[in-house]
């Protein structure tokens, strides 16, 4: 029995559901709103001043804020880091907030990696197995002369394909819309990247100038990877819980908890081994301080890969062995 027709089946079922089209529509609308908001905000942000003046003012504002001593530890760390970053740009005469279509695309990958793309991955993954249970079609699917592992593998392949297509689609739409507002050129522009905060220490050693397209490709790669990992976790929930609503609820709760946790409990070191804490890896790859000091991109990739592998192992074991009584 060939594997490809099984994947074809699963892709067909994914594409024919309304949720897939809705997800892409949401992505498009969402991007349109962000681009509009960014364009509006920038005008107000700069207040008509040259970028050097405005950036210097921002550094001064942050320093005053720091001296006031009324900041939470995590924001304080961010403020110190931000000051160093802005200063670094000022020293090299590069506008830290320069924007172009390509820059927006890269920024989108950054900010979409820890909520939007994972959410879409959850929407696809949460019902990929559980819907077969709720529709009763699992009884047909598993009584064909095809092993259960192959059936589940075909579902996983279709899911990864859907997530990949969605990330690519997001990039294409972001570029198309942002290009209208900020121009389509600028892929070759150099970008200062690799800012790293060791605790509150700013470490310029790792900073490098890199062509924007290379950097964007890397950021998208990381965002894609993070979405795949979330997809794998949601896939496990779908297998275990056999209910789409329960799987989706569990995963969304985990995501939300993951964005809150580093803020309210930044001193809890062990959370760097949780998968949600590692999701914003494109973000701290490209300059933000990591949620927990000391986390690096390779570390996060390794942690996420371990979580995904464990999730898939459990999902396949349970699926292959469990009695279907629904």
């Amino acid at each position: 029995m060939k594997f490809f027709p099984l994947v074809e089946n699963e892709v067909l079922k994914l594409l024919r559901r309304r949720r897939f089209r809705v997800a892409w529509l949401i992505l498009t609308v969402f991007l349109g709103i962000i681009v509009y908001g960014t364009a509006q905000g920038r005008e107000r942000f700069r207040g008509g001043k040259p970028w050097r003046v405005e950036t210097q003012e921002r550094v001064a504002r942050l320093q005053t804020w720091l001296r006031s001593g009324r900041m939470m530890a995590s924001s304080e760390r961010w403020a110190r880091f931000e000051i160093s970053r802005l200063q670094y740009h000022l020293d090299r005469n590069v506008d830290p907030e320069a924007i172009s279509g390509p820059l927006f695309v890269r920024g989108f990958a950054n900010s979409a990696s820890y909520l939007l793309l994972p959410l879409l991955a959850i929407v696809f993954a949460a019902d990929i197995v559980s819907s077969e249970f709720s529709q009763g079609t699992i009884k047909l699917l598993l009584t064909r002369p095809v092993g259960r592992v192959r059936v589940l593998a075909s579902k996983l392949a279709a899911l990864m394909l859907a997530i990949t297509l969605t990330v690519l689609f997001g990039a294409a739409v972001a570029y198309a819309i942002a290009g209208m507002a900020f121009g389509y050129s600028g892929w070759e522009a150099p970008l200062l990247t690799g800012f790293r905060a060791g605790g509150s220490v700013f470490d310029p050693a790792a900073i490098r100038a890199i062509a924007l397209w290379k950097d964007a490709a890397l950021v998208f790669g990381l965002a894609w990877f993070a979405a795949l990992v979330v997809g794998a976790m949601a896939f496990l929930c779908s297998v275990l819980l056999r209910s789409t609503a329960a799987a989706m609820g569990t995963m969304v709760a985990a995501l939300v908890a993951g964005t809150i946790l580093p803020r309210v409990a930044s001193s809890w070191e062990a959370q760097k081994y949780l998968f949600v804490t590692n999701l914003p890896l494109p973000d701290y790859y490209s300059g933000s301080p990591p949620p927990i000091p000391g986390m690096t991109v390779p570390f996060s990739v390794a942690v996420l890969a371990a979580w995904a592998a464990a999730a898939l192992l459990v999902a396949f074991t349970v699926f292959a062995r469990r009695d279907v009584l629904a």
Binding site: M1, P5, L6, E8, N9, L12, K13, R16, R17, Q135, G136, T137, K139, L140, L141, T143, R144, P145, V146
Partner: peptide
Amino acid sequence: MQHVGCIVESPDLYRYLTGRENLLHFARM
């Protein structure tokens, strides 16, 4: 299972697909 065709409990098929698509789906398996 190559020798078996079955309906367990109720004839549950993919409601959002057409009859032909359902048959195609299971024929591919």
